[in-house]
Design a protein around this nucleic acid. Structure first.
Length: 431
RNA sequence: UCCUCGAUAGCUCAAUGGUAGAGCGGUUGGCUGUUAACCAAUAGGUUGGGGGUUCGAGUCCCUCUCGGGGAGCCA
């Protein structure tokens, strides 16, 4: 008997194997049972014939309810009548755990509120499994790309004393009598890391207490934040483009089955190619005004605007040269146009919107200190960060990519809450 | 935080202010190739909580709680 998983069914044709799995669905037809079994690696139809397994076993299996755990032994065969192309002709069956309660999740007709309440069980379904597999591939390809391009994993702390972007959207906690925060970005620490190890990145959870209720927001989400010493904003965009293309390539290579399960339009991903258009904020305004958006200098790019932009280009688009008023203190002012900063946002197509925000960082000591004060922040808490400009300051750049937004785009799903195992939203911390 | 829609069986939803319903799921039975199977029978309800209007409220009004969608902000 060989070690077997459903994902390897095609390697075991005409062989006897044992599936250790769970009952996904049972259909009966007199003296034949069709049991759809999942084992975490995939789904397969198992055929149980009464005359082959005997009366007692047959009756036991017949009355199993959804998600009972079982061990089926039998021969793997190719069969076009099976939805998965393969099936098992069961000869022996062992019940590991017979479920006695009614299983809450049916094969159809559920609202998202109900499913979220049963997230711990919802993740067993084919679509959720596919999404989480793609998330894992996205994360792994991020690490592989960065590690292969001279980046060193350099983890930022989760508990912090200083806040990168003001204090409005932070989760606070009591840290032995002192006020501390859950990290909403690891960037400042990455800047310190880049001065020590040249190219670094962190990949971990970040926390925003914004009371956002949209398809693009979670209060806890994962972000990869690379930071590069001796790197300007243009080179940073090259890296961002390379990373994005690499993730797409890997997902297309390794997650074909999952994309099909999700009915993703794969051609749209295959069509993404280098170079991504780079468009200045000012030109984006003109474009939007052609669509009657009535935009003037300083206005934000909203969700609706992003849809217009992505329809116009049908490729990821970099928006550059933002007005400095709308951006955080650490972004470097442009010397060519002091109204703007050397930052860029990458907009994904198909209405997915911003997936990366990046910038060249302010490396001038005096300018940085005055910007910190201008932002109403206390320079004392940022002393260690200011030190980076006192001791060997160099041009450096970095960016942050949202893992869930990237995954949602790959999957073609409209809400990012399904791209993380247990989403934290403003109204839900269970399960 | 604001705007908006909603809450009826385990789930998805019906029900002119006048008897609480269906499909799916559950249970029981039937069927040797089912594809979210099908057929038959059956159990299952304090209509989210509180208050009000009315002869009479699932339905109208007030309020609270919870949920969906959206805005702002962002990744």
């Amino acid at each position: 008997m060989k070690q077997f998983t459903i994902s390897k069914a095609n390697e075991y044709l005409q062989q006897d194997v044992t599936i250790n799995g769970w009952v996904y669905n049972i259909r009966t037809s007199g003296k034949i049972l069709f049991v759809i079994v999942r084992d975490g690696t995939g789904f397969i139809q198992c055929v149980v014939v009464k005359s082959q397994v005997g009366e007692e076993t047959f009756e036991n299996i017949k009355h199993l309810s959804q998600e009972s755990s079982i061990a089926f032994t039998g021969c793997i065969k190719e069969d076009q009548r099976s939805p998965w192309g393969y099936e098992m002709e069961v000869t022996e069956a062992r019940v590991v755990h017979a479920v006695t309660e009614e299983y809450p999740i049916q094969l159809k007709d559920h609202g998202v509120g109900f499913l979220s309440k049963y997230r711990h069980l919802w993740i067993r379904t084919p679509s959720q499994r596919a999404i989480l597999m793609i998330r894992a591939e996205v994360v792994q390809s991020i690490r592989d790309f960065l590690n292969n391009n001279g980046f060193v994993n350099f983890d930022s702390p989760i508990i912090t004393g200083s806040a990168p972007e003001g204090t409005t959207s932070l989760f606070t906690l009591d840290y032995f009598g002192e006020q501390a925060y859950l990290s909403q970005s690891g960037q400042l620490y990455q800047e310190a890391g880049a001065m020590a190890l040249r190219r670094v990145y962190c990949l971990g959870p970040t926390f925003r207490a914004e009371k956002s209720k949209t398809r693009r927001h979670l209060t806890e989400f994962w972000m990869v934040e690379p930071e590069m010493a001796y790197c300007d904003v243009k080179e940073s965009m090259q890296i961002q483009e390379g990373l994005t293309l690499y993730i797409i390539k890997r997902v297309l290579e390794h997650c074909k089955k999952e994309l099909i399960t999700l009915e993703r339009d794969i051609q749209k991903l295959e069509a993404v190619q280098s170079p991504f258009p780079r468009v200045a904020y000012e030109d984006i305004l003109s474009l939007l005004n052609k669509h009657d958006r009535d935009k003037k200098w300083g206005d934000d790019i909203t969700g609706l605007d992003e849809t217009i932009i992505s329809n116009e280009y049908d490729q990821p688009v970099f928006i550059t040269n933002f007005p400095k008023e709308s951006k955080p203190f650490y972004m470097k002012e442009s010397q060519d146009d002091p109204r703007t900063v050397l930052g860029s946002d990458l907009m994904a197509p198909e209405g997915y919107g911003e997936i990366i925000g990046g910038s060249q960082r302010e490396d001038d000591l005096e300018k940085l200190v005055s910007k910190i004060q201008l932002a109403g922040l206390n320079p004392e808490t940022y002393q260690w960060y200011i030190d980076l400009r006192t001791f060997g300051s160099v041009p450096h750049s970095g960016f942050g990519m949202g893992v869930e937004r990237m995954t949602a785009w790959m999957c073609g799903i409209d809400h990012i809450r399904e791209t993380i195992p247990f989403p934290r939203t403003i109204e839900r911390i269970y399960p």
